[in-house]
Computed example of a mutant assay.
Amino acid sequence: MTDSEPAAADGVSRPARSRRGGKRERLVKAAVQVFHEQGVEKTTLGDVARAADVPLGNVYYYFKTKDQLVEAAVDAHREQIEALTAALDALPDPAARLKALVAGWVDQRETAARFGCPFGTLASELDKRDDDLGEAPAGVMRALLAWAESQFAQLGRADAAALAVELVAAYQGMALLTHTLRDPGLMAAQGERLRSWIESVAGG
């Protein structure tokens, strides 16, 4: 996402849309980062404002409560998944797309070692709640699973749904171990095993 976007039919000028959209996007991006680094419960709106370099009063203009900001962060993760999978779809074949997905995970191994999986940690924390926010991450995870399932289906696998679960579960597991042991090398090694597994599945 960018701070600039074309003028729309609603009559709002491009500069106005850029200023407002850009500030909100900075706040959401900052929220995603701060929630990942210190968790939702420990994060205040002031923390997010400082990370976004935005006055605290401006945060309340866009988000009346922290829950609204958490919801926006979950939506941002969904948009990131959609953008990522759309980019991967440009690759020539399903196995290449799946291996590129794994490579992207491995590229984030230093971050995973420090803070865990950006979305997995958020989903785990929100799962402890008994409100609508507790259920929100499931939709994001289902979107990733559905995309992975479609790739395995294109490989001709009748067990595509099970393979998609196995792939995503393997990533979440290696992200958790990488974070717990503070060992990015673990994710690199397991990522290589996952790529070999994808090749065997594609050839099987």
Rank of each mutant, 00 (worst) to 15 (best):
M1G: 14
M1I: 07
D3G: 14
S4Q: 07
G11T: 10
R20Q: 08
G22E: 09
K23M: 15
K23G: 03
R24M: 06
V28I: 13
K29F: 00
K29L: 12
V34P: 05
H36N: 09
G39F: 00
V40H: 05
V40C: 08
E41N: 02
V48Q: 05
A49M: 13
D53L: 09
D53M: 06
Y60N: 07
K64G: 13
V70K: 10
D75I: 07
A76V: 03
R78L: 14
E79W: 04
L91V: 03
P92M: 06
P92S: 14
P92W: 03
P94S: 15
K99C: 11
K99P: 07
A103V: 14
D107G: 14
E110T: 03
A112I: 15
F115Q: 11
F119M: 15
S124W: 10
L126P: 04
R129M: 12
D131L: 11
G134N: 12
A136M: 07
P137L: 03
P137M: 02
G139W: 04
V140E: 10
R142V: 03
A143E: 09
A148N: 01
E149Q: 11
Q151C: 13
F152G: 01
L155F: 06
L155S: 02
L155K: 03
A158N: 01
A160N: 00
A160R: 00
L163Y: 06
L167H: 03
L167R: 00
A170C: 09
Y171C: 04
L177R: 09
H179L: 06
L181R: 12
P184N: 09
P184A: 05
A188R: 11
A189G: 05
Q190M: 09
R193L: 13
R193W: 00
E199A: 13
